[in-house]
Design a protein around this nucleic acid. Structure first.
Lengths: 226, 226
DNA sequence: AAATCTCCGATTGTCGACAATCTAGGCGAA
DNA sequence: TTCGCCTAGATTGTCGACAATCGGAGATTT
């Protein structure tokens, strides 16, 4: 699991994680109003910790707060996702370039092994798109970690990834893009293994651009449907 | 002023801003323990809003919290700043490339005017390094806004800039780098005016790399001194 | 003397109640 | 009918007090 479970620690942290999960999985609909008293009740805690959790989620951009009015789940419209993917392209591209220099041979081998297991999963006909998505994020996160840049890890790992995962849950049911994606992942690992940072960055940027095109088309269809 | 003053709104927001200011200006030393009761008292509010403010600052990476122990002001060591500048280079580079396509002629003209006023300030012998630094950040932020990317604006504007400003307060007293920086700013605006996104990105990246080298040397000196 | 244990003060985490503010619905006037 | 105003209910913002936890001073043992 990508998201560590602090079922110990402060109640505020627990609430933040549970809320994040509910939002990412769509259990809480986009734009839904979040009632403090109600949520606190359902989590079996007071409103204090819950309010702290909401502040945290606000920082992660999973909820939008308005003073004296309340908090709502963020809505992932086209513009928001477009902006997100543009930022991702820049950051993960950079991560790739640096990771090509910083990752150990061992780490790169592990990355390759990760792709093998993904391939195995795909062969087993679909094998829950869910775990494929999570696996994909795993791949990306391992590279980000390889960059050794703490700020990058925080930005992409702990925070923005949640938005991405949220996006996946909405769109990735009919993900026939997994095969070409795997192919691209292999190319990237290849570039990393050859310590070719520039190539790795280029490939990662293309990969993310491709993902965005795919998502974008899906949004178009949804919009036409309505 | 870059930082909007919400002297109205929730107490938590007020506290967050005042704390951020105190941290950025160095009024609160790096690594200093933040006592909730004490701060709440000094701000004339209860601990509830203050705790929410701390949660907010934690998201901004201005403070580091440990459950059941407390919050401390972040320490800007070499690694942290290095990571920050790497991220900045990628993000602001991207911002420049997009801004070259998105900014209106009017906005670019304003940017140019902003540089004129900076030049004026510099001519007046120093004219408070403080305002020069803030002016520099103003310049960078205007370009980020020109990219029309909300996520980027949030990332660089509302949050990470605070870390940068914090860094400036420590290092920029003997900033003899203002003249070449102004020159580089002019080049960037030129590239924007010619709608040359690639060049603008290249120049911005170089500019930020130069700034990092300058900061890095300064840190070296400080470390030798101790 | 060094290391470990124990207890106490201080600090953080949490809750419940109250005040301030917003939203929705009904009422009256144009 | 439609618009605006005003009251009532619900929701958020804030505070003070209590419980849980941690760090450190001092005592104890080897």
């Amino acid at each position: 699991m990508l998201l560590k479970e602090p079922e110990q620690g402060t109640l505020a942290d627990v609430a933040a994680h549970r809320l994040a999960h509910s939002i990412v999985t769509g259990e809480l609909a986009q734009g839904q109003k979040l009632n403090e008293a109600e949520l606190a009740e359902s989590f079996g805690m007071g409103r204090g910790p819950l309010r702290e959790a909401l502040r945290h989620l606000e920082g992660m951009r999973l909820v939008k707060r308005i003073p004296n009015v309340g908090a709502r789940v963020v809505v992932l419209d086209r513009k928001t996702l477009s902006d997100l993917y543009a930022v991702r392209e820049a950051l993960e591209g950079m991560a790739c370039r640096i990771a090509a220099l910083q990752m150990t041979d061992d780490e790169i081998a592990q990355l390759s092994a990760l792709l093998d297991s993904h391939e195995e999963q795909i062969k087993q006909e679909g094998g829950k798109v869910y775990s494929q998505s999570e696996g994909d994020l795993d791949f990306h996160y391992q590279i980000v970690r390889g960059s050794r840049n703490e700020m990058l890890m925080h930005l992409l790992g702990s925070e923005q990834y949640q938005l991405l995962r949220m996006c996946r849950y909405r769109t990735s049911r009919n993900a026939q893009r997994t095969r070409p994606a795997l192919q691209q992942h292999r190319q990237i690992v290849d570039a990393l293994a050859h310590r070719d940072g520039e190539l790795a960055e280029l490939l990662m940027r293309r990969h993310i651009q491709g993902a965005w095109r795919s998502i974008s088309e899906m949004i178009d269809k949804e919009e036409k449907a309505t």
